[in-house]
């Protein structure tokens, strides 16, 4: 919670500090989201975690194949890797006994096919970001607080990559 008036002054006086104050709530609440999904069916974070991991591999392949896209693709890969780590951490917190599904179920990662046409490779990254944003945005409106905020940030981040790729 923060007081609107004084914190707004501080926000402009020290944006980073205020952001830390704002986020003290989420961090403190992280341990309280016990209302995570029950035992029925996969955890709803499983799909976005696997998608983030797939995007890391795709973006790395695009970066390797097209030097003109390398900067954008490497940045995308790094952000999606951070998403995958955060989602896996939350999954592990709620299901400490489960192996990450990527290692438990999935076949070994195979480098995805990347078009030799830079425009097509760029379009593939854009499409991946749109799909990831849509998936995260939908979950952000239905999941409990901490998870909703995590997915909201992920959706927003994917939108920024779409903008960079445009």
């Amino acid at each position: 919670m923060f007081q609107a008036r004084p914190s707004r002054r501080q926000a402009l006086a020290a944006g980073a500090t205020t952001a830390a104050l704002l986020l003290a709530g989420p961090a403190a609440l992280a341990g309280c989201t016990a209302s995570a999904p029950g035992s029925e069916g996969p955890d709803p974070l499983d799909a976005p975690a696997r998608r983030a991991e797939a995007d890391v591999v795709l973006a790395a392949a695009v970066a390797g194949a097209h030097s003109t896209l390398a900067t954008a693709a490497n940045a995308l890969s790094a952000d999606r890797a951070a998403h995958a780590r955060a989602l896996r951490a939350e999954l592990h917190r709620v299901h400490p006994d489960q192996m990450p599904s990527s290692t438990a179920k999935s076949p070994p990662a195979v480098a995805p096919a990347v078009s030799s046409d830079p425009a097509a490779a760029q379009a593939a990254l854009t499409e991946a970001m749109r799909a990831a944003q849509d998936e995260a945005a939908e979950l952000a409106t239905t999941l409990p607080g901490y998870r909703a905020a995590l997915l909201a940030s992920i959706a927003a981040c994917c939108a920024t990559h779409t903008a960079v790729l445009a």
Partner: peptide
């Protein structure tokens, strides 16, 4: 988040994106 990224592009600052906008 998208406007912040676009202004970073204008400013030529790196990185253009952050993994968790709002944190």
């Amino acid at each position: 988040a998208v406007r912040a990224t676009r202004w970073r592009q204008t400013a030529g600052s790196v990185p253009l994106t952050v993994p968790f906008p709002g944190t």
